[in-house]
Simulated assay, not measured.
Amino acid sequence: MNEKKATQARSWLLLSLCFLVLIVSIYFVLQQRSAPGGTVRQYSETLTDVGFDTFVTYTETTDEESYQAHLALVQERFQYYNGLFDYYHTYDGVNNLKTINDSAGKKAVIVEEPLLECLLAARTFYTYSDHFDVTQGALLNVWHNYRDAGAEANAQGESGTLPSSDELEAAYNAKSWEAVEIDEENHSVYINDASVSIDLGGVAKGFAVQKLYEELTAQGVDNAILNAGGNVMLIGEKSDGTPWRVGVQTPSTSSLESGDVAILSLNGSHAVVTSGDYQRYYEVDGAIISHIVDPTTRWPSQLMRSVTVVCDDSTMADCISTTLFTMTYEEGLRYLQTLKENGIQAEAVWVFDDSCPSIPQSDTAIRSGAFTVLVSDGLTDAISS
């Protein structure tokens, strides 16, 4: 792809990701009071220069000096993690993900602790399900190229195209994790097969949110929301003592259709992450082709419109939402049980409509307009239409 097309594709992606702010809507009661350090009130600002092809909105109830310090931290750390996890670009003085991929079949690469930690988390979640496989970078890159070209065609009123099954099979490697050698003691990563590459798009943003959550809480933050393009972290409690109210957005590809299909009422700190087919996608003959690829089929999943995960850890929530989106509802329930047996408590909200292959039946299903909403047991009392 030439530079002009690449620039157009990046612009389209950033524009579409800006709509991700609608994935979840957070309702605050603004509190303002006097304090020795100055006026305490709710501050909020959206940053667009943090990388990850996304925006970050940081909202906190505090004094202005503290808020500005925390906002600066958010910006600096996201830019740092973007550099570490970048699949397409290298940076001076940084051994990042692209460095690892470029060195495949050649040499091991010494990496910083966060990159090593994120890779280990991704490997752990692969052991829970092969629907989540960050080592299928070659396969994901095929779809990335078709999506960029398709988005450009769609912008001109034309249909995108699909890769052939042969092209997808050639890019897929069933043993790609076996090619990734992680040396925790020496902080090195070596891909011993030059045809294998790693793409952390399904976990990197959630990882960055989790690390920032840990830094912010260590600094005493206890009433805030960090929203990285739909990867949301609720920090502490609302200042008025009521639950956080998180709206699960109507999954529509039209910017004119907004609103929520359901509301979650949550107390305390939680990661809330949504995966859906209506943000990063392109169209082929009117059909939506999303960016979330199921490595077990090699194709973007079309089983549901969205799935939202509520978990204590943003890294885990990101991995889980990506995985659940590629599973049927029944498979997803079994997957959540597997996670529970491994000490991971996560809950989910699934959204279906008549375009889905099937709509699961459940006594707890909520009908919201044209959509059917189902939840795992742990959210039954927390959800309302």
Rank of each mutant, 00 (worst) to 15 (best):
F55M: 01
C118M: 07
P163I: 15
D92Y: 11
Q79W: 00
D313N: 13
E152M: 14
Y146L: 09
R367C: 09
D318E: 08
L303I: 15
P163E: 10
I182Y: 12
A122F: 03
V94K: 02
V272K: 09
N231T: 13
D166M: 10
D240R: 07
N154Y: 06
E65F: 02
L71R: 04
A171L: 09
G137S: 14
E158L: 12
T328R: 14
Q75I: 02
E169S: 11
T315R: 09
L303H: 08
S275P: 09
I263S: 10
H89N: 09
A6R: 11
E64I: 00
Y278G: 06
Y81M: 03
T250R: 06
D277A: 11
E117I: 03
V351Y: 10
G229R: 02
V180S: 08
C118I: 11
L84W: 00
A6I: 05
A228I: 01
A153N: 11
D92A: 05
N154D: 11
R280H: 06
L226C: 03
E181K: 08
G157Q: 06
E152H: 12
L13H: 05
T59M: 02
I235W: 00
G157N: 08
I292A: 07
L120Y: 06
L339N: 07
S314G: 05
F132Q: 13
L256I: 02
Q136N: 14
Q302R: 15
E65S: 03
L13D: 10
I320V: 11
I225Q: 04
V29D: 04
D183A: 09
E330R: 12
P114V: 02
L379P: 05
E65N: 02
D260A: 08
T135N: 15
P357H: 09
R245V: 15
G236L: 07
A224K: 04
T315E: 06
T161P: 00
T127D: 08
Y335A: 12
T54I: 07
T297W: 13
V309T: 12
S384H: 08
E65R: 01
N231H: 07
F28W: 12
F125E: 14
W143P: 09
L97S: 10
H144C: 06
H70E: 00
L71D: 00
Y329G: 04
L15A: 08
L226M: 04
T46H: 00
F28S: 03
D363Y: 02
V221T: 06
G206R: 04
S265C: 05
Y213T: 04
W244I: 05
T372D: 02
S197H: 02
G241V: 12
T99E: 03
A104R: 10
N154I: 01
I320E: 14
P36C: 08
V94Q: 03
Y27Q: 07
D353G: 07
L339A: 11
N223F: 01
S239N: 04
S290V: 13
F78Q: 05
P243E: 02
L333K: 09
T217K: 06
N186M: 12
P300W: 01
T127W: 02
A271I: 04
E112R: 15
